[in-house]
Amino acid sequence: MEENATPQAKTSKALLNPYVAGLLLGATLLAAYLILGTGLGASGAIARLGAHLELQLAPARTLAGDYFGRWGDQPLKYYLVFMVAGVFLGGLVSAFLGRRFAVKIERGAKCARQKRLLLALSGGIMAGFAARLANGCTSGQALSGSALLLTGSLIFLICMFGGGYLTAWFVRGQWDD
């Protein structure tokens, strides 16, 4: 199915039952609320990386800006940056232990590499932009906000799936085998 599949990938261990994985994720989210007082988040850390990069390039302009500027001159000193570092570490350990680590471009066998990477890039730009507009992504809004039954977060959740289903047909080719 997938090109470049390493031998490890073929012998990868079984995944968790999705409901058990969901309970694990839910317990993590609950712990975040009870310990930190905030939900989980990911896009905030990515945006802070963007602010950090802009500060390196044009410090005065970035600090004067209305959005990145409000994060001050050390945008990476933020709890979500540490959380996403943890996500990476946890993912790395779990992928290695489950023998699922494999360097590859995941795509359908009939899809060209460039097409897949172009879609990943444009999707990334849209997701990064939209997460700032909506003040959160799948983690912060759809998952964490919905668990608090916040109207805006549930609307985000519904619109996220709506936007996905509306677009799915046009980009289905990347998964053709």
């Binding site: 999707g123 997460a131 909506a134 799948t138 609307i155 799936f161 936007g163 996905g164 289903y165």
Partner: peptide, 10 residues
């Protein structure tokens, strides 16, 4: 934001 995010997601 949700609509654009969902499109980017898929």
């Amino acid at each position: 934001g949700g609509l654009i995010f969902g499109a980017g997601f898929v």
